[in-house]
């Protein structure tokens, strides 16, 4: 089998905070077959050339959201990006943009996690229901209002794509806003007004400059740009309605 394998050069941005002043590129020649992903490429390097090469991964099927990287400068899940699509050129793999690098391809996600926690990403019931009353009823329309925004896998590719997050790391950012919108749009939830403060805040939707690249790189077609846009409108509406009603205007 080995004799049929082609060789691709993978250039990896390496950084070990304990020994390196700054990140640097290293090149590895990796034998590959057409079914091999970029993730399998870096796994090959770790298993065969340098055990210290560091990256996150788990499911291999684009659902756990661990393995995001910049691949030739574009944020992608490495498990569903294939080496064959780059061959015979050299391929460059780097840590996701806009995040601090912890080591090699691993970035510090603690800021993202704090944002996710800040948006109250859980149902705050509009009408509490006991378990013996059974499930809430949701019409197909009510279901379709929010279902698309439930698909976010927290891979943070949209943050690596977002120029505004690059400039202002405090921006809540596309992924967390999409999740906020998911709960606001859920007919079981009644806390859109509570979440509005954050939407319209300094860190909120008005940071967005409507580039739309976040939706382009989203591997799950969540369309966070759309969620951000809708919330810009909602926040503007809310702002004006506040003059008319002391309770504000959202939902």
């Amino acid at each position: 089998m080995t004799e049929n394998l082609k060789i691709i050069e993978i250039e990896v941005l390496r950084y070990n905070p304990e020994s390196d002043q700054e990140p640097h590129l290293e090149v590895y020649s990796v034998p590959f077959s057409d079914d091999m992903s970029v993730l399998q490429g870096v796994q090959y390097i770790k298993d065969n050339f340098d055990g210290s090469l560091t990256f996150r991964w788990s499911c291999r099927m684009a659902i756990c959201g661990s393995c995001g990287m910049m691949i030739n400068g574009i944020p992608k899940l490495s498990c569903e990006t294939f080496l064959r699509d780059y061959y015979p050129d050299r391929i460059r793999v780097e840590a996701m943009a806009h995040f601090p690098i912890e080591k090699d391809l691993v970035v510090d996600l603690s800021g993202f996690i704090e944002k996710l926690e800040s948006i109250q990403p859980y149902i705050i019931p509009k009408e509490p229901r006991s378990l013996d009353q059974g499930e809430y009823i949701q019409s197909p329309k009510q279901f379709n209002d929010y279902i698309q925004f439930t698909s976010c896998i927290n891979c943070t590719l949209c943050y690596a794509a977002c120029p505004q997050f690059g400039l202002n790391p405090d921006f809540i950012g596309p992924g967390a806003i999409a999740l906020l919108h998911r709960y606001n749009m859920d007919s079981r939830d009644g806390a859109a007004a509570e979440r509005m403060e954050l939407v319209a805040s300094e860190e909120g939707v008005f940071n967005c400059s409507a580039v739309g690249y976040c939706s382009e790189v989203c591997p799950k077609h969540v369309d966070p740009a759309n969620a951000v846009n809708i919330n810009k409108t909602n926040a503007a509406k809310d702002y004006f309605l506040r003059f008319l009603s002391p309770k504000g205007g959202a939902k």
Partner: peptide
């Protein structure tokens, strides 16, 4: 069934029938 209903109350987007039930 109790636990699956609990998860529905917590927001799990179970697929539904046309009449809105799980």
């Amino acid at each position: 069934p109790v636990e699956l209903t609990q998860l529905e109350h917590w927001g799990c987007p179970w697929s539904r029938t046309e009449d809105g039930h799980v």
